[in-house]
Design a protein around this nucleic acid. Structure first.
Lengths: 234, 234
DNA sequence: AAGTGGTCTAGACCACCGC
DNA sequence: CGGTGGTCTAGACCACTTC
């Protein structure tokens, strides 16, 4: 808590969760500036942070308001573990295989590496409350992270971050697919059951690809929920 | 083009699309301030707008850079027609039914109206390049928009906007579901084929529900693509 | 008309990156 | 080290909502 605007953001969040409800009016920017003894621009920085997270919204001429709770979660780049915890499940994981193998055409294209370049491939069954939730296959260029660095007992993201490979953003593609017999057996559902297929290309802040993951979620246990807005671009 | 920061944003966009490529360095904030004869805070406002749209990214101490072009824009709240056009299809539509009927439990809960309150229900088959793409069912509280106001030949969103019901944001839930025999026949795929089921609750800027839509997209023709970022919260 | 957020100024100092 | 973005000030005027 170094910056003033962070103090104000936190103060507002506390006010929101304790004494205010959805669509309630927050103090005006000028009031807050006086209350915290800062300039109004600093208050605006604090509110901008909250608006970015959809915790509040502003209406020109009217004021700043608390956003509805169920709108507040924009999709974030999370690990399976974080995702499950936030959904109220206890996550666990079973490694189905680790390989080093040449990249196929699609993987190479996604990761922006030459076809046939060696990739770390990690296949895991993901469980929630002890029963199958998803089947995940991750590929990372061996040139970035090698098999010998990998500790299967620890979080992959943590280890990537330690190697200077921070995932900053990702491109996700979501489709609906029928499960083949092998995958359906692993996920313990009938052959041909639908699954949510999420392909994710994780990138650094500079935009260079780090990780390509394909995850099959059991359709009966998993869904995506996210907000969309009209404006944004221009 | 009233505001100074908009002029600067536009100028930067032009520079980006004409003379710069991904990860190229933009002029510093101070240079731009001088070039445009404005304060640095105004330049920052312009850049903040572009960063919000992921057209540029900033690295503390290093500079402002052009984002990779293949980073798709965050999902926006669009009509089926807009969505298809942006995907390169020619959209069309066939109305399968229009009713006024009492809201069921789930619809009432979503729209925040009493169970049994009258709703406008509109069921449409959506086509892309002349063949079935999606099956869409929309419900709007009759108290907000009545059947007699509806012109089936025109865009529903346009008519809602004219009635003062601007959709500002929406909550979307995306699942994978198998198609039953009736729906699969309409969409011209095999029974049990997977589909992407998108449920959308469209709201006003103030957060009051306006429209609840459930759309079944053919899995073989449609997928979602969107970016996620790590930061945001905290 | 009063109050709100939106834009804007002309400075300042700090934290970080790259050489 | 110099240059960059990140934070911050103490004002100002404009545009909008609400009454």
């Amino acid at each position: 808590m170094v910056h003033k605007y962070e103090v104000i953001s936190q103060g507002l969040i506390e006010k929101i969760v304790t004494t205010l409800g959805p669509n309630d009016l927050l103090p005006s920017e000028r009031e807050l500036a006086q209350e915290y003894g800062v300039s109004r621009m600093t208050v605006r920085a604090a509110i901008a942070k909250l608006a970015e997270q959809s915790r509040v919204y502003q209406i020109h001429g009217a004021g700043t308001f608390v956003a509805s709770r169920d709108v507040s979660k924009a999709p974030r780049l999370t690990s399976f573990t974080e995702d499950m915890v936030s959904r109220g499940f206890t996550p666990s994981s079973r490694v189905l295989g680790v390989w080093v193998e040449p990249a196929g055409t699609d993987v190479a294209q996604q990761l922006g590496i030459p076809e046939g370049a060696e990739c770390l491939r990690l296949k895991r069954l993901r469980l929630a409350d002890g029963s199958p939730m998803a089947l995940e296959e991750t590929r990372i260029p061996q040139s970035l992270f090698s098999l010998s660095q990998l500790d299967l007992a620890r979080s992959l993201y943590e280890q990537l971050a330690e190697a200077g490979l921070d995932l900053y953003r990702a491109e996700q593609e979501v489709r609906s697919v029928p499960l083949d017999s092998a995958d359906s057996k692993i996920l313990q559902v009938n052959v041909g059951s639908p699954a949510l297929c999420v392909e994710r290309l994780g990138c650094s802040r500079r935009g260079s690809p780090i990780e390509f993951a394909r995850t099959l979620y059991r359709a009966d246990r998993y869904s995506f929920r996210f907000p969309v807005t009209r404006d944004s671009s221009e």
